[in-house]
């Protein structure tokens, strides 16, 4: 058995744990507000608003920790993307997930000390962490302080457009969460990646 690699420093694991918890709170409260029903309240509307606001603020602060950590440690380098050959690498990784994994083929981009993410993970995490998360934070803060939102944008309410964007990105992030959790079961054992996020060590296949 190959040696375990220490890939997930303590700050990252704490950040990740808090983020995961906040994701669940935000998802449950967000869905509860979006599909509020007086006869079947998932979470009481006013409580859902409060929890959503508090969780959103903590997530925003937590995101700053993520940014600071990535700027000040080598964790940031895992997100650096080389565009040349990326397309081929992505196809290779997708082929592995769609076929190779069933035939017990080795991963085309195995995890090493200098490569935490395969190309598909890298692109997905880049879009999520540097695209979707900032958008949901900015739109969320805008909805929390609606006086800063432009009142009318092309005959539509500015709040409406901000809310729609917030909801769409929220939906995309919920899709990310489901797929992310599923892919986490594809480590050396179905629970090895979950263990890694507790003890910091990656277990190679």
């Amino acid at each position: 058995m190959a040696e375990r690699i220490y890939l997930y420093p303590i700050w990252l694991r704490i950040w990740h744990g808090i983020n995961a918890l906040l994701f669940l709170v935000l998802l449950a409260t967000g869905l509860s507000m979006q599909y509020s029903n007086p006869d079947l309240p998932l979470i009481r509307f006013d409580l859902a608003v409060q929890f959503h606001n508090i969780a959103g603020l903590i997530l925003s602060f937590n995101y700053l920790i993520f940014l600071a950590g990535n700027f000040s440690t080598k964790n940031g380098s895992f997100y650096q993307l080389k565009l040349s050959g990326l397309y081929k690498e992505l196809i290779l990784q997708m082929e592995y997930y769609l076929f190779g994994v069933f035939k017990k083929r080795p991963s085309p981009f195995p995890v090493t000390k200098s490569r935490k993410f395969n190309p598909l993970q890298k692109v997905t995490y880049l879009i999520t962490m540097y695209g979707l998360i900032p958008v949901i934070i900015i739109t969320g803060l805008a909805l929390m302080f609606p006086e800063f939102i432009i009142e009318k944008v092309f005959q539509s309410s500015g709040i409406f457009l901000t809310a729609i964007l917030h909801t769409i990105v929220g939906f995309m992030l919920s899709m990310f969460l489901v797929i992310h959790v599923y892919f986490s079961t594809m480590g050396s054992s179905p629970i090895s990646n979950f263990k890694s996020m507790m003890n910091g060590y990656h277990e190679p296949h």
């Binding site: 979006q34 509020s36 309410s157 709040i159 809310a163 729609i164 909801t167 769409i168």
Partner: peptide
């Protein structure tokens, strides 16, 4: 309502 405002919970889009 969307002509003027957005009321979460009341404004939902069937297509979305």
């Amino acid at each position: 309502i969307l002509n003027n405002s957005y009321v979460i919970g009341a404004n939902r889009n069937y297509i979305f």
